[in-house]
Design a protein around this nucleic acid. Sequence first.
DNA 1: ATGGTTGCCAAGCAA
Length: 254
Amino acid sequence: MLSFATWNVNSIRARLHIAVSFLEDEDIDVAFFQETKVADEKFPEEPFLKLGYRIIKRGQPQYNGVAVLTRVDAEEIDPDFEDPLGQKRVLAVDFGSFIGINVYVPRGGYPGEEAFNYKMEFLRRLERAVRKELEKGRSLLVAGDFNIAPEEIDVFDPEIMRGEVCFLDEEREAFRGLIDAGLWDLFRKFNAGKEFTWWDYRMGAFRKNLGLRIDHILVSDELYGRAVGCSVDRKYRGVVRPSDHAPLKAFFEI
DNA sequence: ATGGTTGCCAAGCAA
């Protein structure tokens, strides 16, 4: 059994103790973190090393940053995929039985804005990398913060969200492109209801459950078959000084 | 629903 989690921690230093107790209490083997917001040399490694994790990280000061924490064998690999602006948003790892790609997709903007073009170009490059990897015949897991709510059920109110960033037609189409390339939205293997992974810090959005499902675990056929569970861990959004995202967990018979 | 909150790092940007 392999326990996996993806979580946008919104600063690994601000979330250090919550992240450590999450890995410990939930018995996580492999975690993908996004928005670590720290340069590699300042990453707080000690508490994770003590728990037996190896840390593979691609950070930058202040913004972005991704990390993989693993207590199973893993090697960093070239993701064949460059962020259009050179930001630290992608990290690829070979776990032997599958390739994992940790992604922090740019939040984007409205059509016509540079941030929108950046996000769309990032997603085009991601789809190309996914297709290339699947052509090699390897099992693939792509997980992280996609900043896309794929379907109407994935937003608190489709009418309010229509035309809003993270729920734009173009973004949702790009998400479908990843699915069409040969990936499954693993959460939907086990959950048919309206659930979210992100709630705005403002306006008491979590208390009112005004959220979006924008964090995802996408897997190729074999991993889809081996998965035995996938769920959002809402309790880590309700702690003192939480991330604005909740972790998304998955379990595989490997 | 034209505000609101958080983090980094010490003003303003990004989310």
